[in-house]
Design a binder for these strands. Structure first.
Lengths: 178, 178
DNA sequence: GACCATACGGAACATCGTTCCACTTATCAA
DNA sequence: TTGATAAGTGGAACGATGTTCCGTATGGTC
């Protein structure tokens, strides 16, 4: 077995990686995921060479942004659980997720593009999002306020299909109440 | 109202349009719909300028090829109806369609790409394919050999989902028999 | 056969993703 | 603090691609 010596990133490199991630999130949100790499580099105040050192391919940037967004969405579950009663927490999270899908223009195009680097993304989506909603759902079921025969994945799938129609999410949640 | 004087295409232009369509179909089938325009022009024995005269944007070429393929698939229904007994005609057409979807690499990516020039394609798909299968289905139902409670669009959708699994198509057809 | 609108070919342009490398800078031992 | 050195940076340059432009060729028409 070869020892893969891993040295920590230099301080400036660390800072630049973060800047690029933020810039990419902004640019992709504004112009879609087809926005030019140079634009992202410029917005981050960084040369393209630097960008490519940390994200060797354009697609790696896309993956990073989507993963960040998914993580943020999943992490929101905890806060929402603390801030709202059980059923409202579920509703709030579904709205949060619906908005996430609606803002990511070109998301479905990317997922269907066939690029092998993007293949693991859908799995990451469900790996992170399903547990997040499941937690909220379980406490709501335990409180006796909603039915127990609807799975988290079904709800996520429905909310994705209902992207851009927040009112329908409310309808869905009302349907959950017993 | 301005009179839009339409003059017929010159003979060489007509010939070149046809050559480009054929070349594009070949190249896209071999290399996928992302194949370079120059490749198509070269294969057609034509300059890129000529190609762009008839297909002002790359995407127009893609649309033309898909429409041709859909037309061929729809037109095959008549021949199959003449050459096979009712149920076998349905089975043969579903196989024809399944193969069409399976060979068009990048079809779903294209349909989800969000390019406005591609927006009318899905509608064209069902406009042409649904009547084609409906005809075969009706005669098969009339012969009393298959059930009458399955719609053409449901079958087309299922066959699309089963692309690359021809054996499953046979299973589907068996399920149709009463 | 001559005229001319139509069509042709391919060089040239703009914009990408990506690579390369001369230069800068953070880290650390002395 | 100061050098030495590996790590990191910036942006010019490369190759591929979609698209435009225009001088040249040619089919239709009289």
């Amino acid at each position: 077995m070869a020892e893969t010596e891993v040295r920590p990133l230099r301080a400036d490199a660390l800072r630049n990686v973060e800047r690029v991630r933020e810039a990419a999130a902004l640019v992709f949100a504004e112009q879609g995921v087809d926005a030019p790499v140079r634009e992202v580099a410029a917005r981050a105040g960084v040369g393209v060479g630097t960008l490519y050192r940390h994200f060797p391919q354009r697609v790696d940037l896309v993956v990073a942004v989507f993963r960040d967004a998914v993580d943020a969405c999943a992490d929101a579950a905890e806060e929402l659980a603390a801030a709202h009663p059980p059923v409202e927490a579920v509703a709030a999270w579904l709205h949060r997720f619906e908005q996430f899908v609606a803002t990511k223009q070109g998301l479905s195009a990317v997922l269907y593009s066939g690029d092998p680097a993007l293949a693991p993304l859908p799995a990451y989506f469900s790996d992170r999002l399903k547990p997040a909603l499941s937690g909220l759902l379980d406490t709501a079921v335990a409180s006796g306020e909603i039915r127990d025969d609807v799975g988290a994945d079904e709800l996520i799938d429905a909310a994705r299909a209902l992207a851009g129609r927040p009112a329908m999410i409310d309808l869905l949640v009302d349907g959950l109440r017993r």
